[in-house]
Write a protein that binds this DNA or RNA. Structure first.
Lengths: 237, 237
DNA sequence: AAGTGGTCTAGACCACACT
DNA sequence: GTGTGGTCTAGACCACTTC
C-alpha cells in the first residue's frame, strides 16, 4: 500500500469515528508530516483525496476543516457497484439472475453499447429486490475478450468482485447518463408494478488501459431511486 | 493565472480542437516539461486536472491517452449553473423570475435548507423555458448575510455571475440529491403540464471557507431531464 | 509577525509497457 | 534495455488568515 493511501485511510477512519469531529480542523500539514514521518507532498496527496471525496475543505491560512456529513449524504454517486453499495449501507437485498447468455454485437447494439460490431459479449439480466420487492433491473453487457468466463453464481454474488479479485482487472472510469423513461410491458412484468415511468442509468465502463469492458442499463423503480452527489466547482471552463 | 492552470487550459484547448486527437497519446511528461519550461510536478498537476475531468487517461509505461468524448458526453454534472450550461451548449433559453422576496428561516425551513433558524435569506423562484415551454422551475434560497443585495435583473440574468463577478464570492462545492417526486397542483400550473412526476434536485452550495450561501430545489420536467456524469472508481473504500 | 496552505522546483528511485 | 508514468523527498518562496 502506498504511503499516501495509508495516510488517507487513517485520516478517513479518524474522521468517521469522530476522532477528528466535523466543524474542526485537522492537524496542520506540518504536524501530519511529523505524525506520519513523511514529506509534505505525501501528506498533501492524502489531503487532496479527502478533499476530492468531500470529507474536508482546505482554507488557506486557516487549515483543513472536516465537513459535516449531511443526512442526505452517502456515496451513491461515483463508480460503485450495487453489491458494494448495499454492503456499505447494510441493506439486505437480494439479487436474482434472470438470464445469462452470450451474444454477438450487431450494429445497433454496437452504437448503443460502444462495443465493436461482431465482437462477442456476455448479456446478463438481474433483478435487485429489497423486502421481496423488485426495485432495480440491471442489464449488463461484458466484453468476452476481457471476461472469458461468467457463471450464474458469479452474477448472483458480485461481478465486480470477480473481475477485480479473480481476474485482476483494473476498473478505472465510466461515463453515465441518467434519464427518466416510460416503462415497457416487459419492464412492468419484471418489476411487478404498474408504474408508467422508471429511471434509466446507462453507463459505459472502462479499464485503466482505456479498453471498454462493460455497458449497463440500470432501471430503477421511480419511488426507490435516489442519487447523491458531492461536486466541486471548476473555476476553469 | 497559475502555471499549471495555463498548461491545463492550453492542453484542453488543443484536445478540443483535435490538435491532440482522441485515441492518441499526449506528449510525454518530459516533453511537456520542455514545451512549457516548467518542472515535472507542474506538468503532472495539469495532467491530473485533465484526468479528473475525463479528458485523458494515464497508462503507466505508455503515456496519457486522449479519451474520445461520446455523444452522451457534455458536462451536466458537477457544479455548474443553469446559465453557464445553456451558454456552453448554445441553447436558447429564457429565464422568468416568478417571485423574489426576503424570508426569515423558521425551524422547518432550517432543516430543509441547512440555514440557521432566524437568519434571513432571499427566496427566488424562476422558470426556465426552451422553445416557449417551461422545462425547469428553480427555487433558490440565498443567505442574506453573504448576498446583501438581489434584484429582478440579476435573477433574470445569472446569479452566479453576479456572486462571483461582482461580489467576489468563491463558490467551492455542493451536496446534491436527485429523486423523482409526484407533482403538486402549483407545480403543474407553473410548468403548464399535467405530468404526474418531476425530477427534483436538491442542493446545498458552500463557499471556499465552508460557509453555506445557497440552497436550491430544481424541478425538471420529466421528459426534459438528462444528467451526464464522468466517474472514476475509488479503489479505496 | 507568526502560522497556514498554495505553488514550484530538482532530483531520486520504483513499477510497468514496449521491443 | 529503454522509456514511460508513479511515488517520495527536501527545500524555497508566495498568499492568505489570524493575532
Amino acid at each position: 500500500m502506498k504511503k499516501y493511501q495509508e495516510i488517507y485511510h487513517d485520516l478517513k477512519e479518524k474522521i468517521r469515528t469522530n476522532l477528528y469531529p466535523a466543524e474542526t480542523s485537522l492537524p496542520t500539514e506540518q504536524q501530519l508530516q511529523e505524525i506520519y514521518g513523511v514529506s509534505r507532498d505525501t501528506v498533501r496527496k492524502a489531503l487532496a483525496m479527502l478533499t476530492e471525496g468531500g470529507l474536508i475543505q482546505k482554507v488557506q491560512g486557516r487549515g483543513s476543516m472536516v465537513l459535516k456529513q449531511e443526512i442526505l449524504n452517502f456515496p451513491v454517486s461515483g463508480l460503485t457497484s450495487y453489491q458494494e453499495l448495499t454492503n456499505s449501507l447494510q441493506l439486505s437485498s437480494q439479487t436474482q439472475v434472470v438470464s445469462l447468455e452470450q451474444v454477438t454485437v450487431n450494429s445497433s447494439l454496437a452504437s448503443l453499447t460502444g462495443f465493436e460490431p461482431y465482437s462477442k459479449v456476455w448479456k446478463v439480466v438481474r433483478t435487485r429486490s429489497i423486502d421481496g420487492k423488485v426495485s432495480v433491473v440491471d442489464t449488463d453487457y461484458l466484453a468476452e475478450e476481457l471476461v472469458p468466463e461468467l457463471t450464474f453464481e458469479i452474477a448472483e454474488k458480485s461481478i465486480y468482485e470477480y473481475l477485480e479479485g479473480q481476474l485482476g482487472l483494473d476498473i478505472a472510469y465510466a461515463q453515465k447518463e441518467i434519464t427518466v423513461e416510460p416503462t415497457s410491458r416487459e419492464e412492468r412484468d419484471l418489476m411487478q408494478c404498474q408504474d408508467d415511468y422508471l429511471v434509466l442509468i446507462k453507463s459505459r465502463v472502462y479499464l485503466g488501459d482505456t479498453r471498454q469492458f462493460q455497458y449497463t442499463e440500470s432501471k430503477h423503480k421511480i419511488d426507490k431511486f435516489r442519487f447523491v452527489d458531492f461536486a466541486r466547482r471548476k473555476h476553469s471552463l
